[in-house]
């Protein structure tokens, strides 16, 4: 068989990079387009952002309590022990009537 005229290293190199480029071109174009398009400015979107920020802050602050190392089945025993071990402190004076 006569040698394949179309099979050159340059053509292979070209096709390699053009092919990879074509695989991703739509996604890249979408990313660029979305980056330069104006952000939506309606109240519902602002509210959503506030809400998600607020929720993230709440979850963060409650994490320490929720991630207790003590499993549910023994937590009351632990609580009881810690209450018994706690020293009694003076209570405040009763309010003057």
């Amino acid at each position: 068989m006569e040698p394949n005229q179309r099979d050159t290293p340059l053509r292979r190199f070209n096709t390699f990079w053009w092919g990879l480029g074509l695989f991703v071109v739509f996604a890249v174009a979408s990313l660029i387009f979305s980056a330069v398009s104006p952000k939506s400015e309606d109240a519902q979107t602002d509210r959503r952002r506030e809400r998600t920020k607020f929720k993230a802050a709440t979850v963060e602050s409650q994490k320490a309590v929720l991630d207790a190392k003590v499993p549910v089945t023994v937590v009351y025993d632990e609580l009881g022990k810690s209450l018994v071990a706690a020293k009694p402190t003076a209570s405040t004076k009763p309010v003057e009537q």
Binding site: N4, R11, T15, G19, F23
Partner: peptide, 21 residues
């Protein structure tokens, strides 16, 4: 998956382009 797919499929694209015609 995207990267691995590209590594599998690009050779077929090249084969098509350098085919004998």
């Amino acid at each position: 998956l995207i990267v691995l797919y590209a590594a599998i499929a690009i050779w077929s694209v090249i084969q098509f382009r350098v085919r004998r015609g």
